[in-house]
């Protein structure tokens, strides 16, 4: 029973190799649905994790294996994000990389509410990025960043939203993921840290490569309409809430 729950959780809170199933399924859905999936499905996965081992943290003998798998999975996805140019793919790869922190924290015995906040720390900006990828696909026929040069010239509001989402996904302070990563790394043995820190570098590198194509250069595509006021309001509310959570409770980490 535990094994089945564990395997299901590995699909819902994606960790390699079962993350492949999560990614493949998400890719088949429309962008709006993908945004909901990345918000809700990891929360279901955390419920499943809580049910494994009768609600207790994993046995001590299993912990190093889980931590090792989470580390390898996070590094693999971060490395793969470097070459992704399609916004939805990039976002899913980054999300899979970031959500590995949940496994790390779970193996270290972090309480359920912290795991849920961690999943939201990465899930919320990923949802915003996927929503914007959908908007871009509808307008340009695809969300390949860099195909038409600096999008900021024609879609400044969309670009601003995307920049914030990318920053939040790549653990930039003062977004919640930064504090969640701190909390996650604080709770694991120090020997794991040298493997986790290159992740921060890879995330920054992936974000930098995306920004290069998103922000700089002359736009040479068809004229496009920017996102509407309602979308801007929704995105603003999402980021304001996450910033408030960060500033009031260091990403929510200090409440537990």
């Amino acid at each position: 029973m535990d094994r089945a729950l564990f395997a299901l959780a590995a699909v819902f809170v994606p960790i390699f190799p079962l993350s492949w199933v999560f990614n493949r399924t998400a890719a088949l859905l429309p962008a709006g649905a993908q945004a909901l999936v990345v918000l809700i499905v990891p929360q279901i996965g955390i419920t499943l994790l809580a049910a494994t081992f009768h609600g207790a943290p994993p046995p001590l003998s299993l912990r190093p294996w889980i931590m090792g798998l989470a580390t390898a999975s996070a590094l693999l996805y971060a490395l793969r994000a470097l070459s992704a140019r399609e916004l939805s793919i990039w976002t899913r790869l980054m999300l899979c990389s970031g959500l590995a922190v949940v496994w790390l924290a779970w193996a270290a015995g972090s309480p359920g509410p912290v795991l849920r906040l961690m999943a939201l720390g990465w899930g919320l900006p990923a949802a915003v990025a996927l929503f914007l990828a959908g908007a871009l696909t509808r307008r340009a026929g695809g969300a390949y960043i860099g195909l038409q040069g600096g999008l900021i010239a024609v879609m400044p509001r969309m670009t601003a939203g995307l920049v914030l989402a990318v920053l939040a996904l790549t653990v930039t302070p003062v977004f919640p993921a930064f504090f969640m990563l701190w909390r996650g790394l604080e709770s694991v043995p120090l020997a794991w840290l040298p493997f986790w820190l290159p992740l921060i570098f890879l995330w920054g590198w992936a974000a930098g490569r995306l920004f290069q194509d998103l922000l700089f250069g002359d736009y040479h595509g068809e004229p496009m309409a920017d996102i509407g006021a309602l979308s801007v309001a929704l995105i603003s509310v999402a980021f304001l809430v996450s910033l408030a959570v960060s500033l009031a409770g260091s990403g929510g980490a200090s409440w537990y």
């Binding site: 600096g150 900021i152 010239a153 920004f211 290069q212 922000l215 700089f216 250069g217 002359d218």
Partner: peptide
């Protein structure tokens, strides 16, 4: 942002 060199 018009200058790719600045971005690089």
């Amino acid at each position: 942002h018009r200058r790719p060199a600045a971005g690089r």
